[in-house]
Every structure is written in C-alpha cells, then in structure tokens.
Design a protein around this nucleic acid. Sequence first.
RNA 1: GGGGCUGUAGCUCAGUAGGAUAGAGCGAGCGCCUCCUAAGCGCUAGGCCGCGCGUUCGAUUCGCGCCAGUCCCGCCA
Length: 582
Amino acid sequence: MTAIAPSLLQELASRLEWAGAKTFGAVGQTLGQTVTPAKDLRFGDYQCNGPLTLAKTLGQKPREVATALLAALDVADFCEAPTIDGPGFLNFRLKPDFLAQRLQTMQRGDRLGIPPVPHPQKIILDFSSPNIAKEMHVGHLRSTILGDCLARVLSFWGHEVLRLNHVGDWGTQFGMLITHLQTTHPAALDQADALALGDLVALYRAAKARFDEDAAFREASRLAVVDLQSGEPMARLAWQLLCEQSRREFQKIYDGLGVHLTERGESFYNPYLKAVVQDLAALGLLQEDQGAQCVFLEGFLNKEGQPLPLIVQKSDGGYNYATTDLAAVRYRVTQDRAQRLIYVTDAGQADHFAAVFQVAQRAGWLPPTVEAVHVPFGLVLGEDGKKFRTRSGDTVSLQSLLDEAIARAAADWQSRNPGQPVPEEVVRTMAMGAIKYADLSQNRTSNYVFSYDKMLSLQGNTAPYLLYAYVRVQGIGRKGDLDFAQLADGLFTFADETEITLAKHLVQLPEVLMAVASDLYPNRLCQYLFELSQKFNQFYDRLPVLAAPEPERASRLGLCDLTAKVLRQGLELLGISVLEKM
RNA sequence: GGGGCUGUAGCUCAGUAGGAUAGAGCGAGCGCCUCCUAAGCGCUAGGCCGCGCGUUCGAUUCGCGCCAGUCCCGCCA
C-alpha cells in the first residue's frame, strides 16, 4: 500500500481520478476534481458530486455511474466503505483507526506531518510598496498584511520566496518635492533629518498643489527630474536623504508588525527602461500616438471600439510606471529566475497589471512557464461605510492606527484587570494580532470595514478569541505534563463524538494550507483556525481531560497538544504571535 | 459612455468546478460555573442569496439584461 498524502482531499482526488479513468476512460478522469469536504457532517467527511455531472455526459443514471465507479475505487486504507446517497452523491467517512494514526504522525513531526513540496519554486512576492516622502497609510496595510501572510505560507511549503518592497522612490513626485524644498527648506536638500517626516508629507502636498497650478513650477520640476535621472550630484544627494528618512519611518512600522521585506524600489529598474522601449520597438509592438510611445492592447477597447494603449514612453521622452513594471517583469524572470510573480496591490490596478502582463507575454518576456498573478484587494472603509479617514477628513497614518489599536487593547485589558500593571507584550500582541486577523479573515476581494471594537472583541471570529483558545489549551498541557516523545504508538483513542470531530478537523490542515498556497486567499486559513478553536472549546466544555481515566487522559492530552501546535503554526503563518497567558 | 469588483439574516461577512434542509460571528431572547482560565459552551428567533429573463432534471452559484454601491478608463503610481 502506498503512502497516503498529507492532504486527504488530494489523496481522494487522485484515487477517484484513477478509478474514473479505469471505469469510464478519459471523461472519467475529471471525477478527481469533484471531491470536496462534505457540506454537512451528517453526510460524511468528504463528498463527490461527480457522478451526477458525468451521468449526463455518459447518458446513464447517476446512481449507476456511482456504483460502477465504486467497483474500481479502493479507499479502504483510510475510509469506511463509501456510500451512495441521494440522487448519486458519493460520501466518504474517515476510519477512526486511520485518524488516530494520522494524528500520531502530526504529533511527532516538527512540521505537523507536512513535508515540503517536492519541486520548490522561486517566487517573487511584490507587496507593501509605500511611496517615499509620504507616510504609510491605511491603504498600505492590506498589501503588507496579505503579502506577509502569503509569503509565510509559500515559504512553509518550501518555496523560495523573495519579498520585494517595490517602493515609489522615483519619478515626477521627486522633481516636485525637490523644487519646492529649494525655495522653502533648502537645508533639507543637503542635511539629513532637517525635517520631520510629517512635515515632509505636508510639503509634498504643497508641492503637488503648486505643480497643478503653476506652469513655471511644473517646468522647474520637470528639469529637476531630468537632473535626478542624469545623476546630477546635488539632486542625487537630496533624493538619497529623502529616501533614507522615509525608509527609517517605514522600518518602524514593519518592525511593529513583524514584517520583513527586501527593498528594491522603482529606481532599481532605471537602467533597464531604455531597453524596454527599444526592444518593444524592435519587436514591432510599438506605435507612436500623439507623441507617446504605445503598445496597443488586445481586448481593451475604448468607447469607439478602438484598442487602448499602454504608454511606455511619454511624449516628453520620460518613462512611466508601465515601463518600470515591464522592466521589473523582465528582470524578475531573467535575472531572478522567478517561476511565479505575485503582486499584492489594490483592485484598482487590475487593468494596469492585465495590460502589463499582456505586453510582457507578447514581447516574450513572460514565458508560459512563468505564472504572473495580480492578487487584488478591496478598500479599507470606516464604520460609516466610506473611505477610512480621520474626523477632519485626512487619510489615517498607519503609525497612528497601530498606536490607537494598542491604546484600546490596553484600556480594555485594564478595565478587566483593575489596579494591575498592564502587560505591554500581551497588549501589543493582541492589538497587532487583532489588526492582522481582522484583515486576513475577510475575503480580500471585498472592501473591508475597519472597526477597532470588532477586531479587539473577545467574542467571535477575532484574534483575541483564537489567542484565548490557545491559552486555554496550553493551560491544560502544562498541568498534564506528559512527555509525548516518550509515548508509544496507539496514543489516540476516541470515546466521544467531540473528540472525533476535533480530530477530523486537525487532519484537514494540509489541504487548507494547499488551498491558500494555490488560490492565495488567507481567509481560508482564518476560517479553519476559527473552526478549530470552536471545536476545541466544545471538546473542552464537554469532556474532562486531566481528571479522565487512562487511556482517555493521555489521548485527550494528545489532542490538546496537537490543537495547540496547529493553532500556533496557523497563527504564525498569519503573522500572529501566540501568548501563553492572558 | 466603456470596463472591473461588490450586492446572501437587523449588522459584519463565509460559501458555490451547478446538487442533498443556504452557514458563521455580532446583536436579541433563554439556559449552563462544587470541575482543566465562563475572554467559554448549549438552545431559540431571524433569509424572494439585489431584480428579471434564459440554459438545466436541478441556479444563491453559469449566461444575458436591468438596478444599487465602489474603483479604474493614453502620458500619476
């Protein structure tokens, strides 16, 4: 008997695929893709609806298809005999013996029994990407949190993940800013930290306003960009000072969130921009339109039905973000040798990335062997359902948002523990966990309503609820004081339904982590962990652990220990640290 | 005007390669601590799955058309 895959879903899929092919030929192979976790636990643990669909193609009755399939299907090593129910559903139930054995495997391994993928990929994950000379704001929060979580999950599977911070450190805004500073704060151009970053942000706004209304200023700014791009020393120095200052501010936030990134900003690709345009021209993809160099897109039409252009060189000869992104794709494929490019940016950039990927493919820079994918996400809204802003209408700086979450978590803790000193680490962990979990637990494609009260709540699908479940389970483990390394086989026995329910949930971890790695939806992992906590709490409520007789006591301690390990690992993959006491 | 995303319980949201009685949390009501942290658990109430048409044995899911919200739409990123 061959080994059973860590993902039982995948194991069932490949067995069904084999049995389907044997019974019905090529059309039967697709049966493997029709197995899902059971919708209702009364039906079993996994279900396959394939026979109903296949029956139509084959012109047979669904139940006949199911019966024929079962004759060729052997899952007896981990499932009870499958049943055919309703119009032709196949239902599978895991064998308790197998469950016990699988839990033991998870218990003993340092990776919860999940081996890394056999063929790791080089993956570039592009996320966070704030703009130099501006403060990070709530809009950067989702990219940073989502990107970090995806990086952690992909790394867990053994992929080589390069986390790139594609910071906005180049282009028109620097021309504006430098020109404005020349007249208002010349010291900032050649002395480090002459301005606070907050002032810099205000100055940036002022510069933008001048740029929009003052033609002379616009021209001066344009010349400043030219200076900068040609490497003129004074412009270069000013640019470096501004970048350094911003970088330090960003780092404070990344440190607070526990997020690591490699900075490789837009300026990095500057030397490659010219070649992008030249090579597009050589490939015959480039056309001039109103003075700009464009690639006309397939499938993107304007209101007259004409193809829309992707501009890669402006009429003034400058390059833009499309050029940079094309150069980046090219560099990441040829120099970094990436096999998967992932961009975590807001949904508003969907068209832009679709256009860039299309042009890169047509130019041959993005071969079919490399997957490029935009991971879009919705807006962060305030509780009024409108864009998240301060009361005065400004965008909320990320630092103030994090500080506010910590302050509220501290106040909440104090109200429940009057007169006691507030444990800084506990409060910090809860606050950061709450912010991350609130974001990650929602389907990223929808807009998300930011609410301190909800994310910090101890009830419901929140980080504090999960952290508390972990604290409870660890409390038992400490008192139980069992050395699992010393225990022989046969640790797990199931006397009660809640134990089996918990056990079945625990063994589903691999298939959930696989789904997150392929579909890039972290909310699935959150859902899994929340359900795990609920199932653990039900078990905890119903059954004694420490006071139970052997062998139940050791088995239940084993379930507690494994639950703790899965919770800790799962939360770590979300970028959330656990607490031992609350 | 064109395109993307979204529309599911009072609120915040899951879910669906088309399938068995549509799920959870919060909020509301009721119950459970001589017992491992009650920051917990159980029960009850609450739904034309935005609207209409179509494909299908079967549509919340797929297609088309509306309606509403939101974002994007050649030289910002």
